[in-house]
Design a protein around this nucleic acid. Structure first.
Length: 798
DNA sequence: GTATTATCTAAGTCT
DNA sequence: TAGATAATAC
């Protein structure tokens, strides 16, 4: 039983309780993954066949990591039949195996977000709807949340509440779009991300024999990050676990950060309701972080109302305080981080891989990247525009998709005229109209006699025929060749390789390289031996009866849409600084963590300011960010930042203020009275939500300004849109006369501050570079400012 | 039908 | 800023 020795009593209890439902509430850094892996190992140790265990994780990254850990503590090959993966990948496989029950082919395509958006867009266009009203993103969110709540298109249209909501939003046609969307996906033999869960529910609901089969198969079910499951996922788990009730869910309500995707903390409560005798374990000892970090994190999360009771504590050392730093621009913030990394590496003998830079939005990675590149610090970006989402990769994959599933309309639309082969918009429109009228896929129109009946130029027709012949040749090849051979042939014959090769711009070269990289990846896939870990997630008795070519394109393509950058295999040089969004960092840990861009309207996101629930999710997100760190956290914010090419003036995040000073180490402008100015902004901010609110109601067409306008005396309140200064105003922010005056300032001078206005310097103290000035501002009262940061302009001597 | 240019608009987080 | 789309010239 040596493998259990490393567990603390609470962990051990959770691991040993294998029979019956259980729930593990695991605080950040309390060894949640450890419990899951040991639990699985323990099950197998007790004689449970890995064949009967299903472990569901939230990301591929988590699945892969856990697989590695299990591999280390079990006998070789023992975990071979273990099913472990994300909800999406596991059920995609089950759906492929059972596809014909739902009248889908097993080689159905998985539409990614881009595909889905493009389809929605063409539907709204066809319906003659204004795409400014029916924004694809909005429509998609609506459809997505309907699916996650198990509402089909018909149910959506018949639901009076929803219809009323849509009418109120002045978007009454969403239900109709949803219906068409569903039909189009079906005839294209495609499922989107939400369908993978939705259709699994349909499958388990309508086919008791299938349900029975998988209930028997999955005698033990484990779910990681349970707080982030949505209703659809919750119900799948509930159904599969109903027979044996050996369901173990692990989660932390404080780390629920996917409500935007339909995740529901309610599921934790549902679980206790569904299994009243479920055993609850709480893991509260944090092994990851210093006392200081745990203390700050606890304090942050305390501000939230919605949470389960638990107290995270640690035995670790105190550790240094959290450093808070401010810069003037986002690029400077990048330099600050880069320099800190160099410094820490030097002082603490740290490796690049010991550092993570976390941000709220992917767009922020750029400034960081540039700074790191300049200083020759190796880094790796997770997420963002994934490799598989690059245009050239998607183009090539679209050919592959059509080879496997020619009815894949989105793939067809993408490539029928790329590289240009004279099949233009007019032609494609005609095909599309015919296809939709007859409820067929584009392919079934152009590859059949239908084509002859269409009023298309003979020249275009013959070009279409050539295209059809080409795809058919790929299909023939796919039957006998491996994935690499097929894809290489496609790249060559389609003209993609040539098209990119002739493009000698740096972008063109990069694209060509990416294609080569994809081909290399496929080659690896074909050449790699059967390794146990890879096998673990493949359906052992799959995929369909006809014993498909295991190295074939179909298998390679299977769930490429579900992969992200983090899942790429090239692990050779992992000694790099990690850059990622806070969301992507969930479940990971690093000795040194930088959380950047801590500014109002960014973190918390501007869109979260309107409701308490949204703001609490942002706060949980910040909690997640803080608790990633083992030794040190550094927070930074910038006074200005480029957004959409415009310079935006930024305020520090409220989250900084929410941390007690005893956990912090300021290098901020106002050392003696931290956030004196920010506090005054806080006042502004409290009015901001009102401004927001009235602005919002206005845009709704129904003016509530009267109701909100009672607070007219708040005239000093700066509405948010004013805070977002435009380019002209912003030029003042970088006006050199404001920036460079610091050294020359003396007592008695009249100065002007960008924000506080005019005032008189009454006192100077301290030495460079931390010289501090006390200034009596005409309107804002007395402030103490650090000269190196204060944006002051000298007005007149004495 | 294609290539080039001008204009628009988006970036919130992930499977 | 950058990619996507619309307008324009060829």
């Amino acid at each position: 039983m040596t493998y259990l020795d490393g567990l603390n009593p609470a962990q051990k209890e959770a691991v040993l309780h294998t029979k019956g439902p259980s729930m593990v509430i695991a605080g950040a850094g309390s060894g949640k993954t450890r419990v899951l892996t040991y639990r699985i190992a323990h099950l197998m140790h007790q004689g449970v066949d890995s064949f009967n265990i299903l472990a569901l994780t939230f990301t591929n990254k988590a699945a892969r990591e856990m697989k590695e850990r299990i591999g280390k503590i079990t006998q070789p090959g023992e975990a071979k039949n273990l099913w472990m993966g994300t909800f999406h990948s596991v059920f995609a496989r089950i759906l492929r195996a059972e596809a014909e029950k739902l009248h889908y082919p097993s080689n159905f395509t998985i539409y990614d977000t881009q595909d889905a958006k493009s389809l929605i867009k063409s539907i709204t266009k066809e319906m003659g709807l204004d795409d400014k009203v029916y924004k694809t993103g909005l429509v998609m969110n609506r459809i997505s949340s309907a699916k996650n709540n198990l509402l089909s298109a018909t149910a959506y249209c018949n639901n009076t509440d929803i219809q009323a909501e849509d009418r109120q939003m002045v978007r009454p046609k969403i239900g109709e779009i949803y219906k068409t969307y569903e039909q189009r996906c079906f005839k294209a033999a495609a499922m989107d991300f939400d369908d993978l869960l939705f259709k699994t529910n349909i499958l388990l609901r309508d086919f008791p024999d299938v349900l029975y089969k998988y209930q028997h198969r999955f005698k033990y079910i484990l779910v990681d990050e349970y707080q982030d499951t949505n209703f659809s996922q919750y119900l799948i788990v509930k159904k599969l676990g109903a027979l044996n009730e050996n369901v173990c869910v692990v989660g932390d309500d404080a780390q629920s950060i996917y409500a935007f995707r339909g995740a529901n903390i309610q599921n934790i409560l549902n679980f206790q309701r569904d299994y009243p005798d479920c055993k609850v374990f709480k893991l509260e000892q944090n092994y990851r972080s210093t006392k200081n970090i745990v203390g700050a994190a606890n304090q942050i999360i305390e501000k939230n109302k919605d949470q389960l009771e638990k107290e995270v504590w640690t035995d670790n050392t105190e550790g240094p305080r959290i450093k808070v730093e401010r810069t003037l621009t986002d690029n400077e913030e990048g330099n600050l981080v880069a320099n800190s990394i160099i410094e820490t590496r030097h002082n603490k003998q740290a490796q690049p891989q010991d550092f993570a830079i976390l941000y709220r939005t992917n767009a922020q990675s750029r400034a960081m990247e540039e700074a790191l590149r300049k200083k020759d610090i190796p880094y790796r970006i997770f997420g963002g525009t994934s490799f598989y989402q690059r245009k050239e990769i998607k183009d090539l994959l679209a050919y592959c998709r059509m080879t496997i599933n020619p009815n894949d309309d989105e793939a067809l639309k993408r490539i029928i005229n790329y590289p240009a082969r004279g099949i233009g918009k007019t032609t494609l429109d005609k095909v599309g109209i015919h296809a939709n009228q007859h409820n067929k896929s584009f392919w079934s129109v152009i590859s059949a006699e239908d084509l002859a009946t269409l009023s298309i130029h003979a020249g275009s027709k013959s070009k279409i025929k050539q295209f059809v012949t080409m795809i058919k040749s790929f299909q023939a090849l796919e039957k006998r060749a491996n994935a690499y051979e097929v894809m290489e042939e496609i790249a060559k014959t389609s003209g993609i390789s040539k098209d990119l090769f002739t493009d000698k711009t740096p972008e063109g070269i990069a694209r060509y390289d990416n294609i080569q990289e994809l081909l290399n990846g496929v080659k690896e896939f074909v050449e790699e031996g059967d390794d146990d870990e890879k096998e673990a997630i493949v359906l052992p008795d799959t995929v369909d009866g006809e014993a498909k070519n295991a190295k074939g394109l179909a298998i390679f393509l299977q769930d490429i849409a579900l992969l992200t950058d983090a899942d790429q295999g090239n692990d050779q040089d992992t000694n790099k600084v990690s850059l990622m969004t806070v969301h992507a960092a969930k479940g990971l840990e690093f000795p040194y963590v930088f959380i950047v861009g801590l500014e109002e309207n960014l973190f918390p996101s501007q869109m979260a300011l309107n409701s308490r629930a949204d703001l609490e999710e942002e706060r949980r997100l910040f909690y997640v960010a803080l608790t990633r760190a083992e030794k040190e956290v550094r927070l930074s914010y910038s006074a200005s930042r480029y957004k959409w090419g415009n310079l935006i003036y930024c305020e520090p995040s409220r989250f900084i203020e929410e941390i007690d000073e005893r956990f912090l180490d300021y290098t901020a402008p106002e050392t003696s009275e931290p956030f004196a100015n920010e506090r005054s902004n806080y006042f502004e901010r409290s009015g901001q939500s009102k401004a927001n609110f009235s602005a919002k109601s206005k845009s709704n067409g129904r003016s509530k300004t009267n109701k909100m306008g009672s607070k007219k005396e708040d005239k000093k309140v700066i509405p948010p849109h004013k805070k977002m200064v435009n380019v002209n105003d912003a030029k003042r922010a970088v006006d050199p006369s404001f920036a460079s005056a610091a050294g020359k300032i003396d007592e008695g001078m009249r100065v002007e501050h960008l924000r506080f206005g005019k005032g008189k310097v009454t006192k100077l103290e301290g030495d460079e570079p931390n010289k501090k000035a006390t200034i009596q501002f005409d309107k804002m009262g007395e402030k103490q400012l650090l000269l190196k940061f204060a944006k002051l302009r000298i007005l007149k001597d004495k």
